[in-house]
Design a protein around this nucleic acid. Structure first.
Length: 887
RNA sequence: GCCCGGAUGGUGGAAUGGUAGACACGCAGGACUUAAAAUCCUGUGACCAUUAUGGUUGUGCGGGUUCAAGUCCCGCUCCGGGUACCA
């Protein structure tokens, strides 16, 4: 029978849909549950590309396998549909984003259904649906009404926030200010990156290294705007500790740890000559205080104006002005050449009362630590470069462990930088009574920190790189904030009952250059009056795209519920997510934000687990072949001609190099899954994406490879659907052995997401079966079952041909039997000094001594040994024999 | 600069410290066919030798541990990703 995949695939897709084969079980008593989640896509206008089905196929195989293992499986799909492209399209054409979004979702849904993925479509969600974002707004209100209790390390309702007596005395306004200062969400003036192209603010995380906006590529600048911020650093310790318990790739865990960036050190107060203010610095190395010979403050530091002496005012102001015009790129570009100016002022080093000059330099940033540093040029390369350039003193305080006397002398004189640790020298002062000379790093840090604390000059301090999360955008196509700004200055959040707050219909979607979102144009929507006649104005910013994706995995559990975010019993049953697969580009942003929200919801008793995603896996990127000329300029794929394995430019005839690059419109090397499906079928596409290589590595798409798996499926179908090949009775022992080895291998590989080797194991079995020519009907159905998670359409068809009337989706997974895999003999490789020379068949039960006896008597052993006598003979049972000798 | 990966045939890749190159692509030869496609069969790391059996070499480079290293350790090179004047 021919492998007529178009007909087979259509028929089974219809069967699954009509019979709701993959409906999530309602029964919550089954102790075996598995929640298998994909990172839901942004439905772009371009439709699916072959990168999407890679992760989707992997989770689909896992889901189908788990169902056969008797698990209740939750495997949903939805759309992360707020975002800039739909809005930009609206600006250009006037088409409302909801229409664009709906069309794109329809395309995505159709394409995904064509792949035979076993989603429960009754669970479909869309972040732009008011019934969905009602709960996004509801969560925002919870964030607003939560404070973080440091003692309990836990978020609690603001109604439980104790207000200190001295603040209560100051009156209501101060109490409100205090409460606002404790909320997880707050509204404040923030210096933010402004993209004048998108007319929007970008989070630090969205600004690329070159100072351009991640979304549009244009340069960003700094602006002050009223913004909503989330205090994610309050959860830094919890987010950091939680990482240890997760079954995630170590690389991603490291990235999150680095992003959180915990460092322990001390804050040290320096008094300033002639001023009452003190200058506080954060340092991870308080032990190096004796080597601090100057200080640097960031140009944005609040004390710059106060510190700067009159005669230096002009040069400092000029320097600050120059810095503010610099983008991140400029600052980075100037990395080699340090810049800075002297403020004219001196601070006093607390450990030795010495004068140290205060400088302003843009290599110190305002966003980290206190925005001021003490510089230890003798032992820090950056400080050293700066000191060299501006002729500042360098004092060596760590004994360099150098054998070269010349170099040692240079270091001790401060002519060279020594960045390794050593015993302290020059680190004592009689007047202040401090002395750490001869101590090592740990002892030095402990002693100095203790001394600082005892003198009230500083304290031990933990610092995080993680910064407040900027949570608003000046856009139309996002969740509106459920917030009203009243004419008397009060800010209030809406009542839960009044949610959702929907978006108004607009004529124009263009944001204003002032930074106000297009929502400000809708007078009717914008202005509100309360029952006392007080006038108010709605928040015109909208939430960033992260908002909807921060909690969607919860809504999938109970998408239709309009009284609660998620039913408690259902949440308890399904959470946490057992397997989450998606691209590594979300390593820090989405995954960290999402964990943050989840922890808040956990603290408020809304969810039952502390972490949302138990096991995470990142699929590798799929690249495509691209072509370049000898000089390295790229040639679009439609201009390529292949002749005898070489590539030529269709127009110029020049020979081109084949390289591997990201798929892109400009290179015209984007592969559309629709084309692959129509040519080879969905099962072939699925199988190829899994067979290309390990799931987590980056690999190039090669259509020739699809042919390979297509051939395998065709052979399998023709062999198994031909009744001449199927017999009754006892199975051949060799086939039985191969079959059970295959079950074992496929099962282990699916559990570990090694789909490429699982497929190769099935190919090996099919090669064996076709060589033998006949298999029993039992073998045929067993093989059909293990193939079914990978190639479900064809497997269902074979199952039907084998006489079954129902889908095989819930057939029990076959159990392998070790007895069938047992061997009587093992073909021992015999090696001499580690070099394999020949093989010899011996019974598996044979003892080491017997094996040695037989091998030493073998003619071939004599040949390789010559006149030498073995000094050692290693026998690893059923693995290898190694004869060691000297010649 | 720092952090994390990676490097195996013409290609994608396989290999619990134990026979390197499974499986597949490509290529070559053959069968079927008027022909092509499809399908099936055989061969295929390199080098040397050969009627054949065979031998030498081989997992980016240089060392080391081990009876045995693609795999573990040390030092490099190159490539990819992340990140940055982060104190």
């Amino acid at each position: 029978m021919d492998y007529t995949f178009p007909e087979i695939e259509k028929r089974w897709q219809k069967y699954w849909e009509d019979n709701k084969t993959f409906k999530t079980p309602e029964d919550l008593t089954n102790p075996k549950k598995c929640y298998i989640l994909d990172m839901f896509p942004y439905p772009s206008g371009a439709g699916l590309h072959v990168g999407h089905p890679e992760g989707y196929t992997a989770t689909d195989i896992f889901s189908r396998y788990k169902r056969m293992r008797g698990f209740n499986v939750l495997h949903p799909m939805g759309w992360d549909a707020f975002g800039l492209p739909a809005e930009q399209y609206a600006i250009q054409t006037g088409t409302h984003p909801s229409i664009t979004t709906r069309n794109n979702c329809d395309t995505f849904r159709r394409q995904i259904k064509d792949l035979g993925l076993s989603y429960d479509w009754d669970k479909e969600i869309n972040t732009t649906d008011p019934r969905y974002f009602k709960w996004t707004q509801w969560i925002f209100i919870r964030l607003y009404n939560t404070w973080f209790d440091h003692n309990l390390q836990k978020g609690r309702p603001v109604s439980e926030l104790p207000v200190p007596e001295n603040i209560k005395k100051l009156g209501t306004i101060e109490v409100i200010k205090y409460i606002d200062s404790q909320r997880l969400a707050y509204y404040d003036n923030a210096q933010v990156w402004w993209c004048s192209h998108c007319c929007t603010v970008c989070a630090n995380e969205e600004v690329l290294n070159d100072g351009s906006h991640e979304k549009c590529g244009n340069k960003v600048e700094k602006r002050n705007l009223k913004q909503w911020m989330l205090r994610i650093p309050l959860y830094a310790e919890r987010l950091l500790k939680g990482i240890d318990s997760l079954n995630w790739p170590e690389g991603i865990k490291d990235m999150q740890r680095n992003w959180i960036g915990r460092s322990t050190g001390a804050e040290v107060d320096f008094s300033i000559e002639g001023l009452i203010e003190t200058l506080t610095v954060f340092t991870t190395r308080p032990d190096t205080l004796f080597g601090a010979t100057y200080m640097v403050i960031a140009p944005e530091h609040p004390l710059v104006g106060t510190i700067t002496t009159n005669d230096k005012k002009k040069s400092v102001e000029e320097y600050i002005k120059a810095t503010s015009l610099k983008s991140d790129l400029d600052r980075t570009d100037l990395a080699k050449e340090k810049t800075g100016v002297f403020t004219g002022r001196y601070a006093i080093n607390p450990v030795n009362r010495k004068q140290v000059p205060i400088w302003v330099a843009d290599y110190v940033l305002t966003g980290y630590g206190t925005g001021a540093i003490m510089a230890v040029p003798a032992h820090d390369t950056r400080d050293f470069e700066f000191a060299q350039k501006f002729h500042l003193p360098v004092l060596c305080i760590q004994d360099p462990d150098v054998s070269d006397p010349v170099q040692k002398k240079r270091i001790l004189e401060g002519a060279e930088c020594w960045t390794q640790d050593g015993k302290y020298i020059n680190s004592s002062d009689k007047l202040t009574g401090t002395d750490i000379n001869g101590l090592n790093k740990e002892a030095g840090i402990a002693l100095i920190t203790k001394w600082l604390e005892s003198k009230n000059l500083g304290k031990a301090k933990i610092n995080y790189k993680l910064r407040d999360w900027l949570f608003s955008r000046q856009r139309y196509w996002g969740e509106p904030f459920p917030v009203i700004h009243w004419e008397d200055g009060e800010v209030s959040v809406m009542n839960d009952n009044d949610l959702p707050l929907e978006l108004p219909k607009l004529e124009k979607y263009l944001p204003s250059e002032s930074g106000e979102s297009p929502l400000a144009n809708s007078e009717e929507w914008l202005n509100v009056t309360d029952k006392n006649g007080r006038k108010g104005r709605r928040e015109t910013n909208t939430m960033p795209q992260w908002a909807g994706s921060c909690w969607y995995y919860l809504r999938f559990i109970d998408p239709g519920n309009d009284t609660i975010l998620v039913d408690r019993e259902k949440e308890k049953y399904w959470m946490p997510v057992d397997l989450y697969i998606g691209g590594a580009e979300h390593a820090v942003l989405h995954l960290l934000y999402s964990r943050f929200w989840h922890k808040v919801l956990f603290d408020l008793g809304i969810v039952s687990t502390d972490e949302p995603y138990k096991r995470l896996f990142n699929q590798g990127m799929i690249l495509a072949f691209a072509y370049e000329t000898e000089s390295g300029s790229k040639v679009s794929a439609d201009l390529i001609e292949e002749r005898e394995g070489k590539y030529f430019h269709r127009d110029t005839g020049a020979e081109l190099r084949q390289i591997v690059a990201k798929m892109s419109k400009s290179l015209k090397n984007v592969v559309n899954p629709d084309d692959v499906v129509s040519k080879y079928g969905a099962d072939s596409l699925r199988l190829y994406e899994m067979f290309m290589g390990p799931l987590d590595v980056t690999k190039p798409w090669d259509e020739k490879g699809v042919k390979g798996v297509f051939g395998f499926l065709g052979r399998a179908f023709r062999f198994l659907s031909n009744t001449d090949n199927i017999i009754n009775g006892e199975e051949d022992t060799e086939i039985l052995k191969g079959l059970h080895q295959t079950i074992k291998k496929v099962e282990w590989d699916i559990e570990n997401l090694h789909f490429n080797t699982a497929i190769s194991a099935m190919m090996i079995f099919l090669n064996l079966a076709t060589k033998k020519g006949k298999v029993t009907s039992e073998t045929a159905s067993t093989f059909t079952k293990i193939l079914s998670p990978f190639a479900p359409h064809m497997s269902e068809e074979l199952w039907r041909l084998q006489g079954h009337s129902k889908s095989l989706a819930y057939e029990p997974w076959p159990e392998f039997n070790e007895d069938y895999m047992k061997e009587d003999n093992f073909d021992y490789p015999v090696s001499f000094n580690g070099k394999m020379r020949f093989n010899i068949q011996l019974p598996v039960s044979m003892t080491k001594d017997e094996i040695i006896k037989i091998i030493l008597a073998d003619e071939r052993t004599k040949k390789w040994l010559g006149n030498a006598t073995p000094s050692n003979i290693i026998v690893v049972p059923n693995r290898i024999v190694n004869i060691v000798f000297k010649n």
